[in-house]
Simulated assay, not measured.
Amino acid sequence: MASADQHLSTSGPSFWAVLGLAAVFLCLSGLFIAAPTAGASIFGIPAPGNVSDAYLRAIGFRDAALALYLAGLVCFSSRRAVGIVLSATVLIPVCDVALVLSVGTAAWWQIGLHAISATILIVMSIWVLR
C-alpha cells in the first residue's frame, strides 16, 4: 500500500479517475458558461435569463477552477493533497442539494445528481487517501 505522501502514479487507476473527474467538471463548466439555461435545467434551478445568466456562468467558472485544481494536484502534488481537496470538495454538492431543495423546483433526478456527485467525491477521497 502506498503512502499518502507519495504522488499518484500515472499508471494507477486513481490518477485517471481523478483526472476523469476533473474532465467532467470542465465539461460541466463549459455548459454553464456557453449555455447557462441548459446548465440550470440540469443543475435544478430556474434560469430566468439576462443578468441572471451571469450567476449561472459563475457556477461554470467555479467548476472550471475545481477541474483545474484537481488536474494540477493529481499531476504535481501528493496523494494527501489530492485527497484533502477531494474531501473538502464534498461541500459543493452538499450545498448544491440544499440550494435546489430551497428553490423547490428541482426534480428528483436533479437532486440525485448532486447526491451522486457528493458520494463520488467521498468515495474517491477515501480511495486516494487509503
Rank of each mutant, 00 (worst) to 15 (best):
Gly112Asp: 06
Ile33Trp: 04
Leu121Thr: 06
Met124Glu: 07
Asp5Ala: 15
Ala40Arg: 05
Gly49Ala: 00
Ser14Lys: 12
Leu121Gly: 04
Ala54Cys: 01
Leu99Glu: 02
Met1Phe: 12
Ile84Thr: 05
Leu26Gly: 11
Ala35Trp: 09
Ala88Gln: 07
Ala107Thr: 09
Gly39Gln: 04
Gly39Arg: 03
Thr119Val: 12
Phe43Tyr: 14
Cys27Gln: 12
Val123Gln: 05
Leu8Cys: 10
Gly83Arg: 01
Cys75Ala: 09
Val97His: 07
Ser102Val: 01
Leu8Tyr: 05
Trp127Leu: 09
Pro93Met: 08
Phe43Ile: 02
Ala118Val: 11
Ala67Lys: 02
Thr89Phe: 08
Ala54Tyr: 02
Pro46Lys: 07
Gly39His: 05
Gly44Pro: 03
Gly112His: 06
Ala106Leu: 06
Asp53Pro: 00
Leu73Asp: 03
Arg130Glu: 11
Ser9Thr: 13
Trp16Gly: 13
Ser125Met: 08
Ala17Cys: 12
Ile120Cys: 14
Val97Arg: 08
Trp109Asp: 13
Leu31Trp: 07
Ala35Asn: 12
Ile122Lys: 11
Ile84Cys: 08
Phe15Gly: 06
Ala106Phe: 05
Ala58Cys: 07
Phe32Val: 07
Gly104Tyr: 07
Ala65Leu: 11
Arg62Val: 01
Leu113Asn: 13
Asp63Pro: 05
Leu113Val: 06
Leu101Asn: 15
Ile111Met: 12
Ala106Arg: 04
Leu31Asn: 05
Ala71Gln: 01
Arg80Gln: 07
Ala71Ser: 08
Leu56Gly: 00
Ser78Arg: 05
Ala98Pro: 10
Ala38Pro: 09
Met124Leu: 13
Leu101His: 15
Ala47Asn: 01
Trp127Gln: 07
Cys27Ser: 12
Ala47Lys: 00
Val100Trp: 11
Arg62Asn: 04
Ser14Gly: 09
Ala40Ser: 10
Val97Trp: 05
Arg80Ile: 06
Asp63Glu: 10
Cys27Trp: 11
Val128Ile: 10
Leu28Phe: 14
Phe43Val: 02
Ser78Val: 00
Ala58Thr: 04
Gly20Thr: 00
